[in-house]
Amino acid sequence: MSNPQMVMYDEEFKQINAVIEKLLREANSKVIFLVDKNGQLITGVGETERFDTTSLASLTAGNIAATGGLAKLIGEKEFSILFHEGEKDNLHISIVGGRVILVVLFDNRSSLGLVRLRVKKASEELTTIFARLMQKAEEKEKSGDTDFPFAEITDDDIDNLFS
């Protein structure tokens, strides 16, 4: 398969949230999301309740996929940073560690320069955490110690979902 299974554990989830909460403060931003390249929301901090986070995640991934397609057409591997400027709010979108998308929403209380600077530092930390997470998931899968919730589901469990 082109992409290994994406898994998130408690320990890394906390570490990741700590990094993006710090980024939220240091970059003076309003909301920060982390999205899987397939469009699944991983986590978000800040004023998340004001936004439709699921839609935001899906459209961000679509956006990254479309610009990635454009990049390949002109001979680039990908465009690792996208910036969308609005009247009040702006979006800074960047790819972290090759497979996760970091979305920073900010207004005029911050600036593109500050966001870029802080994102760069946070990206390095996030890359390390995600690399460790992937390794951990791989090791758990190999050893068979997955505590995978679906390993023992029955047909009845599945049918009940649709009743």
């Binding site: 992409n3 994406m6 898994v7 998130m8 408690d10 890394e12 989830f13 899987d36 397939n38």
Partner: peptide
Amino acid sequence: MSFINYASREINCKI
């Protein structure tokens, strides 16, 4: 691929 989040106890799949 599906995304399994043990922290928020969610499984996401794409159709």
